[in-house]
Write a protein that binds this DNA or RNA. Structure first.
Lengths: 236, 236
DNA sequence: ATATTCGTATTTATCATACAAATAAATAAT
DNA sequence: ATTATTTATTTGTATGATAAATACGAATAT
């Protein structure tokens, strides 16, 4: 078991199991029983059961008497859960998953930018500006390029004023982290990218709804094109 | 505690607590401790703890020694969790929540339709046609209008071929269920609506990406306009 | 032979109890 | 008034025992 990640044993075990499952370590072996898990991780049955219940709540496991604990089909996993997103990230996802992430962002973020522009008088919009400043600072090596990019897109989701968009912040962040793992060997800090972001912010601040949507769409669609060009044709 | 909803006591308790929380029953009273929950629901501490851990996994609760169990801020709740969506639905959400649902659908579903059109050769597309037939049957009273509508939009999400869109099926279904509760007093079975759906299906089947996106957007945007017109101006 | 019934072993589900650890609040000391 | 210490409360962890569900195989009947 990992050092001292979660706050308590139950959380740690849930985290470790989640990671192991998403890494595919139980693809060929049957999933252990409660008793086996307790023994393998040197944890009480109570803690084991609680960890299993947490993963059950995320749609990853299910358990029935006599049958034991089983991994649910991937289609049941709650992919928008923050923990699950973390486990996806550390499972080193391939281009297909990255494409799915970016296609989703291409649906969400242009609309979020449009909604933000429609509420341009909101205080939330200033956060977008602050994140943009961080991106500009990152160009000079004074901030982290990835983290400031994440902050920018997160700020737009918040500025949408829509609880569902707001909750997609971890999704967007994970998508960006997956992206950079596939693309940052090609380009480092990108001045053109930052100014494209600046144009999005400008449109939002000035309440230009259509323009905000279109600019954000352009931003993400460019990334999507790069990914699809890099993919073998079979995967499309 | 409710009759025999979930498969076991833990699930039942988690379900009942989730419902109670989303109904706002702990707005003014402090959340009970483990011991109090056990006593109030006549359930062992183990089962109580497991239920609390399940809600913790969904971002709804957190617990620390001495401080007890606390309800997390709503921004932490996993709103895309199927159970949470069910609890939202049974909490009789108002127009603000409905608007958030439909804004989200307006982002997701036009893109899903576009992606489905781009894979029009897929077998998944036939499911959309079958759902459309159900909608047409519903016009004649031979099927359920709401369920067939849900099936239609779910089929398009599946046909997108994108795991994230696919997982938004329960979201879309809940959104439609919330919608009908606010709008079906105005209109019953709508022939115009069904033929608009038929045009979306036709565009997808013929691989017309742009058209599929535009038609689906029109479909949802019309619903959104009705909602925003019905809302007091303050909420925009 | 085939299908059905029935028993049995295995695994989770539930309950109870005990002690440890964390920590918020009260109390005492400076 | 501030800080340190004690105390009480609550969750965390472990263990053991019994109940309930059910997959599997054996026995039985058709």
């Amino acid at each position: 078991m990992s050092k001292a990640a979660g706050r308590n044993l139950t959380h740690q075990l849930a985290h470790d199991l989640g990671n192991a499952i998403l890494q595919g370590r139980f693809m060929n072996v049957p999933f252990p029983s409660e008793a086996e898990l307790s023994e393998q991780f040197s944890v009480s049955r109570s803690a084991t059961r609680e960890a299993v219940k947490m993963l059950t709540a995320k749609g990853i496991l299910s358990s029935r008497p006599r049958q034991g604990i089983r991994i649910m089909p991937e289609s049941d996993w709650n992919l928008f859960d923050t923990d699950v997103l973390d486990w996806i990230l550390s499972s080193k996802p391939g281009l297909e998953v990255l494409r799915d992430f970016v296609q989703m962002r291409a649906a969400i973020e242009p609309e979020a930018a449009a909604l933000a522009a429609a509420r341009s008088e909101s205080e939330d919009v200033a956060d977008i500006g602050r994140a943009l400043e961080r991106m500009q600072a990152a160009e000079l090596g004074q901030d982290d390029p990835l983290e400031s990019d994440i902050a920018f897109h997160g700020a737009i989701l918040r500025a949408s004023g829509n609880r569902f968009f707001i909750q997609l912040q971890p999704f967007s962040a994970t998508a960006l982290r997956v992206s950079i793992r596939h693309t940052n060997r090609f380009k480092g800090v990108n001045t053109a990218d930052t100014s494209a972001h600046a144009r999005v912010y400008s449109a939002i601040k000035r309440g230009k709804v259509q323009q905000a949507r279109k600019l954000m769409h352009g931003l993400i669609d460019e990334a999507l094109q790069l990914i699809e060009d890099a993919m073998p044709a079979s995967g499309r």
